[in-house]
Design a protein around this nucleic acid. Structure first.
Length: 556
RNA sequence: UGCCUGAUAGUAUAAGGGUAGUACAUCAGAUUUUGAUUCUGAGUGUCUUGGUUCGAAUCCAGGUCGGGCAACCA
């Protein structure tokens, strides 16, 4: 018997609904407002909504919740579509709440006719004041008891453009003393003489979220309308409209939005980071936006895996960044081609090496049994990583030191014979000898070494620029710290190395491909790369047990 | 002072009256031509106080703490 993964609360609800025969297929929707870019929190919602219909049969619509023309733009529509597709999901229909404006308008008239809505001439301050407070009931507007005929006429005039923005609104007539503030005669239509990205200038009245979202769900016969916790109090209104309008009863369910440690996850805060130039745009690789993460080198598969592993529930949460890193490493380990790149070069000369034009073959990816090999030119003069040599090695250091031996990955074992320094005592070169019988794959030397280093032949090296990213914030949950979240920005979140030395094969790097720079981390080509100046973004480091070990030594 | 909502290892998520489990993180060890990967092992948890029950993370009551609710935003 196959081991069953336990169900989350939504899967349970759906399985119950299905087995009770309430629906014969599951219909969900992903409803972004096109007023910004998608981020990791949206990714969780996307995986949830699309994942559910994939699992249980049915489909998911992409519906733009575009009821506020003053903040929404086509540019966002395009980026959102791109991100959803990139994440690997296909929507059944591309829809817009604004496609339903006519229908919604008729719904409003229906409500007026039934005596459930009225036009209010009060300004927004008055309406807010009359709402009361959570602990105090509100009071009725003096326009609340207009006749149905008058309401119909005024609403018609609103639609016809007779009034200026803010001059009148349409309100649902519910109960100004209701314990739920949202039920105190909520505004459902407002006047906005604004150009709409999708409907142009066809309308000057626009429905509010509460008078568009549930109705859109209903029109589309969405069976399970999944949203985040802050909409819990809206559910009562959602159901009220469905009941009074007597339309298809979609049901709303709420889950806790996904947060991630060491970052922020609200459009508003992310926009601040962009506007105040803390980052270089929405797709800055440090941003938790889908576009930023894509640019950084995260794979769609790893993001899906992350969402899957974290799961969903109804309590506030901050998911561990290390889990995301684990997911992307796991994916990249399988698919990334290995390359050798030296970031901080130290020259070594193999004094006994006389071969010319030697090429060694190094595996492209040891995790891939069918993986090929690439040719890497070897030479008498090489670069290794400066930190891979120490004059006074600590205990358990098994890299290079004077008199010590290491293997050069895919090539020979070498021994350090002499350290050469400049006048100020800086190490500028190591003279080493190589063991000719120790050639990789053909080793008859019988020498065992603990360390293996990456290297490049100086004569053949190509150069590149590298961008190393660290977490954007120093605090685990910057939004919950004292003061402004921006006080916790990690000012060292980006480190640029203008010139690194790479094996020639890296010259053929292609956008969208993933590489593991041996012992350094996973990298991908940045979109700002040019032929003469390739730029690589570090997606994530490799796990580094040795670095951790060093920290312990420091403490002692 | 009201209403809604939640609380299980460091984090996230299971167990739905019957052995508190899984993953990541952490620690220890093995393997390793990446101090990577892989493998083995370890430790840490039911917010609290009562009640019901042979038996409670689970059911009931009170409390505590967190989040949300007073946009012509979504």
């Amino acid at each position: 018997m196959a081991e069953e993964k336990s169900l989350n609360f939504l899967e349970e609800i759906i399985e119950n609904d299905l087995s009770a025969g309430r629906y014969n297929q599951v219909v969900t929707r992903f409803p972004p407002e096109p007023n910004g870019y998608l981020h990791m929190g949206h990714a969780a919602s996307i995986c949830l909504n699309f994942g559910l219909t994939k699992k249980y049969g049915g489909y998911t619509n992409l519906r733009f919740d575009d009821t506020n023309p003053s903040t929404e733009e086509t540019e966002y529509v395009e980026s959102i579509k791109q991100d959803v597709q990139w994440l690997g999901f296909e929507w059944k229909h591309e829809l817009y709440a604004s496609d339903y404006f006519e229908e919604l308008y008729l719904f409003a008239i229906k409500l007026i006719r039934k005596g459930y809505a009225y036009v209010d001439d009060s300004n927004s301050e008055t309406i807010a004041a009359e709402k009361g407070r959570p602990t105090q009931p509100g009071v009725n507007s003096k326009y609340r008891d207009r006749s149905i005929e008058e309401n119909l006429q005024l609403f018609e005039e609103m639609k016809a453009g007779k009034y200026a923005d803010g001059e009148r609104v349409l309100r649902a007539k519910i109960d100004m003393a209701h314990i739920n503030m949202l039920m105190r005669d909520p505004v459902i239509y407002r006047i906005k003489h604004a150009h709409h990205h999708h409907t142009g200038d066809a309308w000057c009245i626009y429905p509010m979220y509460d008078f568009a979202h549930g109705q859109s769900d209903s029109i589309e016969q969405v069976t399970h309308s999944i949203c985040t916790l802050e909409f819990v109090p809206h559910r009562e209104l959602y159901n009220w409209f469905i009941e009074k309008l007597d339309i298809y009863p979609s049901h709303q369910y709420e889950f806790a939005r996904r947060n991630l440690s060491y970052t922020v996850m609200s459009k508003r805060k992310l926009l601040q980071l962009v506007n105040d130039k803390y980052v270089d745009g929405w797709d800055d690789p440090r941003m938790p936006s889908i576009s930023g993460m894509r640019r950084r080198g995260f794979t769609a598969a790893s993001i899906r895996d992350f969402c899957d592993r974290v799961g969903i529930a109804k309590r506030e949460n901050v998911a561990d960044l290390s889990l995301l890193e684990y997911c992307v490493r796991e994916d990249l380990n399988k698919i990334a081609s290995r390359r050798m790149v030296v970031f901080d070069p130290l020259k070594i000369v193999l004094t006994n090496y006389i071969t010319e034009n030697e090429i060694v073959n190094v595996e492209d990816n040891p995790e891939d049994v069918n993986g090929g090999f690439r040719e890497v030119p070897f030479g008498k003069e090489l670069y290794i990583e400066r930190e891979d040599f120490m004059e006074q090695p600590p205990k358990k250091f098994f890299r290079l030191f004077l008199g010590g031996m290491v293997r050069l990955k895919g090539a020979y074992i070498i021994k350090c014979d002499e350290v050469i320094k400049d006048e100020s005592g800086n190490i500028i070169q190591l003279n080493c000898s190589y063991i000719p019988e120790s050639k990789s794959g053909n080793d008859t030397s019988n020498i065992k070494v603990k360390g293996t280093l990456h290297w490049v032949s100086i004569a053949h090296a190509v150069t590149a620029e590298v961008k190393l990213y660290d977490r954007l914030f120093k605090a685990e949950d910057p939004s919950n710290e004292e003061g402004d979240f921006k006080d916790y920005i990690n000012e060292n979140s980006l480190q640029i190395i203008d010139k690194v030395y790479a094996e020639p094969a890296l010259k053929d790097a292609k956008p969208g491909e993933h590489y593991q720079f041996l012992r350094k981390g996973y990298f991908t080509l940045d979109k700002d790369s040019t032929v003469n100046n390739p730029i690589f973004n570090r997606t994530v480091t490799l796990k580094d047990t040795w670095a951790k070990e060093l920290t312990k030594v420091d403490i002692n």
